[in-house]
Amino acid sequence: MEMLRLYILVAIFALFSALLIPSINAQVPEPAPAPSSDGVAIDQGIAYVLMLVALALTYIIH
Rank of each mutant, 00 (worst) to 15 (best):
I46W: 00
M3R: 13
L50E: 15
D43W: 00
A18I: 08
P35V: 05
N25K: 04
Y7V: 01
L4I: 04
P22N: 07
A34Y: 13
L20Q: 13
I21R: 13
L57E: 14
I12Q: 04
I21G: 05
A18C: 14
A11H: 00
P35D: 05
I42D: 12
A34M: 13
P29Q: 01
A47M: 03
L6E: 13
E30S: 14
I24C: 06
S23F: 10
A54E: 12
V40D: 08
A26K: 15
P29A: 01
I8K: 12
L6W: 03
V40I: 07
V49E: 09
I24T: 10
E30V: 06
Y59H: 10
P29L: 00
T58D: 08
L57C: 11
I60N: 08
A11Q: 06
Y59T: 11
L6N: 08
L20P: 03
A54V: 04
L55I: 06
S37Q: 10
I21W: 13
L52Q: 10
I61L: 14
F16R: 03
I42F: 05
L52M: 10
A54I: 05
L52W: 06
Y59N: 10
M1P: 07
A11R: 05
A56H: 05
S36K: 12
L15Q: 04
S36H: 06
A54K: 09
S37W: 04
Q27C: 03
A32Y: 11
L9I: 07
P35K: 03
I60T: 10
N25A: 08
S37I: 01
L19V: 14
S23N: 14
V40M: 04
I61A: 14
V10M: 12
I42A: 11
V49F: 06
S37N: 14
M3W: 05
A47L: 04
Q27P: 02
A56W: 07
Q27D: 11
A34H: 09
I24E: 07
A47C: 00
I46C: 00
I8S: 09
V49N: 03
L9G: 14
V53R: 06
V10Y: 10
P31C: 02
A34I: 09
S17Q: 10
A47Y: 03
I12F: 02
L55Y: 07
Q27K: 15
A41T: 08
L9H: 10
Q44S: 11
L15A: 14
I12Y: 00
R5F: 01
T58R: 12
F13A: 15
I21Q: 14
V10P: 00
L6A: 12
N25R: 08
L9S: 15
Y7E: 10
L6T: 06
I12L: 13
